[in-house]
Simulated assay, not measured.
Amino acid sequence: MTQHLRAIYEDGVFRPLEPICLKDHQEVTLVLEITESLQGNEAESLPIWEFAAELARDVPVEEWSNLPSDGATELDHYLYGSKKTR
Rank of each mutant, 00 (worst) to 15 (best):
V31P: 01
I20W: 02
L5Q: 06
Y9D: 05
E62R: 09
V28E: 05
V31Y: 12
T85F: 10
A52E: 08
V59Q: 02
L5H: 07
A52M: 15
E50P: 12
V13H: 04
E18G: 05
E62T: 05
E54A: 15
G12K: 03
T85E: 10
G12N: 06
N66Y: 06
K23M: 05
T73L: 05
D11V: 09
I34P: 05
R15L: 14
E18L: 07
A53P: 11
D58I: 11
G12S: 03
S65G: 04
Y9S: 13
R86N: 11
P60Q: 04
L46V: 06
K84W: 04
H25F: 04
R57Q: 12
A7R: 03
D24I: 02
P19D: 07
R6E: 09
D70R: 01
E33C: 07
E54H: 15
E10P: 01
E18T: 14
A7E: 02
E50F: 04
W64Y: 10
E18I: 07
E54T: 15
E62G: 02
T85P: 00
S82K: 03
A56V: 08
W49P: 13
L67N: 00
L5I: 09
A52G: 11
E44F: 13
N66L: 11
I20H: 04
G81D: 01
M1Q: 08
C21Y: 09
A52N: 09
G12F: 02
L5F: 13
L30N: 06
E27G: 10
P16G: 03
N41E: 08
L38Q: 06
M1N: 09
A53H: 07
V28R: 08
L5C: 11
E33V: 07
I34A: 10
R15F: 09
L46K: 10
E50L: 15
